[in-house]
């Protein structure tokens, strides 16, 4: 089982500047938060996360096949 992980903007560096990353899930109860921690992405650098196009909680349990996007903070507009 694996997921596709897009680290956007300045967060790309936490995935060796590769976008998207393919991440193998080690077991069936992996939470997205664990993957983010493994990659050492500071929680304060993230604005929000999308799973399959929808704004989602980092505590979501992944089942494999998901497309995950981790967005950085933005300002202004």
């Amino acid at each position: 089982m694996q997921i596709t992980l897009h680290l956007k903007g300045p967060l790309k560096k936490y995935g060796d500047n590769i976008e998207p990353l393919t991440i193998e899930l080690e077991h069936t109860q992996v939470k997205l938060r664990e993957i983010i921690e493994q990659l050492e992405i500071p929680a304060s650098s993230i604005s929000f996360i999308q799973i399959n196009g929808e704004k989602s909680d980092p505590d979501t349990v992944l089942t494999g096949g998901e497309v995950v996007v981790v967005n950085p903070r933005v300002a202004g507009g």
Partner: peptide, 23 residues
């Protein structure tokens, strides 16, 4: 030049299109 601000360099404001679309 930190994670909080470097979206400006990596993408600039077009980055917001995906954010707005998904929300």
């Amino acid at each position: 030049m930190t994670d909080d601000n470097m979206w400006a360099y990596s993408d600039g404001t077009p980055m917001i299109v995906d954010l707005s679309q998904s929300t």
